[in-house]
Write a protein that binds this DNA or RNA. Structure first.
Lengths: 210, 210
DNA sequence: CATTTTTAGTTGCAAAAGCAACAAATTTCT
DNA sequence: AGAAATTTGTTGCTTTTGCAACTAAAAATG
């Protein structure tokens, strides 16, 4: 079972032998790609981190997905509707591999090492994406802000094997990620502290369950 | 590109040659499986349809996911937390294939046709799952009941290539799927009708956009 | 290192959504 | 066909959440 194994730099040091793949670098704040229908674009984030954001007609921003090292993304995973624009924005400097999904299974002319490695790891990469998406849905289907926060904290706690952990986002981004109003989230967080469920020092959260 | 192609009965008529695979039948209402950690169970729904449901500590039910023909599911796609039970329930009579995810890539002793077919189609199956999950997240991140309904209708409309379509769920289930209160949803639906955005006859919806 | 920008933290008020409790209509079951 | 169960449709009331508008603190930037 390869789940949760450390795939680390498996793609990072590939030999640029493959003509079908492009590697690009982006500075913080730049737009890495926008999702355009039927392009079948597939991307791998080699370093840095980025957000898939949606801007609706009212200008509201939603963080649809967050990507970190070795996460995959691209329009190939989406049915793009005309209603709103989906953009991937670099949160810090990023290196990204781009290619067209159709090309993955087609054997590369040179039968390059990169292609071999990619097809070998692809199921694992997609599986971990599915797990992430399911986790997100788990959170989003919680009916109250309190439940969303507690579930999210519980997941982080399980991951770190500790009741104490750092928040990976700013509180502003966390509200976007949970798809709730920031001030309402702050209010609920305050209540959670007052009720003794959590302790917060800086961006470190400690769960106090009995 | 195999996306959106008709994979149809590719697994249905396999020759039962593979010992690692079990095929089981379920009657409407039966529990197909429950998600138990580290079992690495992977399932394919051959016929019928089923829901992944969560019952929380208050007894509230949430439809986490809905499965129809050729959809894949199983605990392998989940990080199972102890907080709540995840069950797959047959909504009508179902046929399901079960196996352990680890076995997929291991070559079957007999190198059976089933295994070959499965590995061939697996990326397509997982990809369509990712597309479904992303669509769901798109809906769940919408901030109001009105936006959720309109987005959902818009997706169905795009799929059917028509402004008129049947709802695949009962309204009760739709509310669970969108993770909103049913009576609040009914109220909003009424307003949408009154405002002339949609027309509803039976469970057929027609969008009236200008 | 001073200044701009972003993030955190608060609060009153308004709007939206949830809850509960029905009746009516449909569907399912025997 | 008749009874039972489920789904639809509705409403008054309550609670939660969102919105707007701030100040304070922290971080980024030239």
């Amino acid at each position: 079972m390869i789940r949760n194994s450390n795939i680390d730099n498996f793609l990072y040091d590939f030999e640029h032998s493959c003509q079908k793949v492009q590697k690009k670098t982006f500075a913080k704040g730049e737009t890495i790609t926008s999702y355009i229908e039927k392009r079948n674009q597939f991307c791998i984030l080699l370093s840095g981190n980025a957000d898939l954001v949606r801007y609706d007609l009212n200008g509201n921003k939603t963080i649809v997905e967050h990507f970190s090292k070795n996460n995959i993304f691209g329009e190939v995973f989406y049915i793009v509707t005309t209603n709103n624009e989906l953009l991937v924005e670099a949160k810090e400097n990023c290196e990204v591999l781009f290619f067209i999904y159709d090309d993955i299974n087609k054997k590369c002319q040179k039968n390059c090492k990169f292609h071999q490695t990619l097809t070998q790891y692809l199921p694992e990469l997609i599986l971990s994406k599915v797990i992430d998406l399911n986790m997100r849905i788990e959170l989003l289907t919680k009916r109250s802000i309190r439940d969303k926060l507690l579930s999210y904290f519980s997941i982080l706690s399980t991951r770190k094997l500790s009741t104490s952990f750092e928040l990976p986002y700013s509180l502003t981004d966390l509200a976007d990620y949970l798809s709730i109003d920031r001030s309402a989230m702050m209010r609920e967080l305050k209540l959670l502290k007052e009720d003794g469920f959590v302790t917060k020092t800086g961006n470190r959260i400690t769960l106090n369950y009995k």
